[in-house]
Design a protein around this nucleic acid. Structure first.
Lengths: 156, 156
DNA sequence: TATTGTTATACTCTATAACTATA
DNA sequence: TATAGTTATAGAGTATAACAATA
């Protein structure tokens, strides 16, 4: 029985997650926390509210993640300069270095995997995967929009 | 800034998970429980021990998942015919139907996504993704083996 | 009155360790 | 003595709801 393309794509996601979990085993970092660090690295110092929006989780959840990352020395909470309700979260210097290294390794992994593809297939793979990602995103967004509309209708 | 192929692959995994979570919203099913049902559908009635091995989680975890699935009417616990320590878990009729439908939808999604790829690129995409999955698996397995060896050395 | 973050509470997934029943 | 499953306990991630401080 041949393996579906979709199954191989999902397998890649699982393998990646497993590898990341292994890499951070013993450091106190987890997938969710690394994701927050990643968002912080790209967005720069941010309020917890904004982090909640960018991570697509509740503000309460951010409180917990930042608590853990503060304790492990990866982030720092500082007061917002003008809004005394807000808290600014920023990477510590060591965490910023860690994230840079991580981003570099990520790029290297991308190159390694691309090198596993036959040169004459590479362009087609890039095009094909982009098309699949874009199509799937549309499908999911449409399904979510429809579900939201149905719910709204039910509420009225 | 162009998106890395690796990032698109990871995005596909996330989108798929999000879509699955949405599809089962309100049914009491979750990713972990659906995974167990999936394993059960492919392996047929199994002991909890075997389910733990196949799902790569602890036996304790299977107890919890089966508890939930039993309560929601998706699986049934029956005594093992010869070993009174063991419990056989099997899908209920309705769950078996649900899983068949799900598998069909899965195949349809695969076809839909494949249809989003230009016909002349399809063969290359199939080959390329198989190569990437296989290469990544080797990388992860090697890393895990190495980590295990290091740990063993530390223990001696 | 609206917004930001936190406390309170709860549920799922996950793990390890101790225990019971059985092999 | 070893194995199958459960109870006990713990921790992470997630959510909603109520609340305090501030805007």
């Amino acid at each position: 029985m041949e393996t579906l393309l979709l199954d191989r794509l999902l397998q890649i996601g699982e393998l990646f997650q497993r590898d990341m979990a292994r890499a951070f085993d013993g450091t106190g970092l987890t997938t969710a926390r690394v994701h927050l660090l990643w968002v912080l690295q790209h967005a720069g110092p941010s309020t917890q509210r904004d982090l909640a929006r960018m991570c697509e989780v509740t503000p309460r959840n951010i409180t917990g993640l930042v608590d853990g990352l503060e304790e492990s020395g990866h982030v720092r909470r500082t007061p917002h300069p003008t809004d005394r309700r807000s808290v600014i979260v920023e990477l510590t210097d060591t965490a910023a270095q860690t994230m840079e290294r991580m981003q570099q390794e990520h790029t290297e992994l991308n190159d390694t995997l691309l090198a596993a593809v036959a040169p004459e297939d590479r362009a087609a793979v890039e095009r094909g995967i982009a098309a699949i990602a874009s199509h799937l995103e549309k499908l999911v967004v449409d399904a979510l929009t429809e579900a939201a509309a149905t719910e709204e209708q039910a509420a009225s």
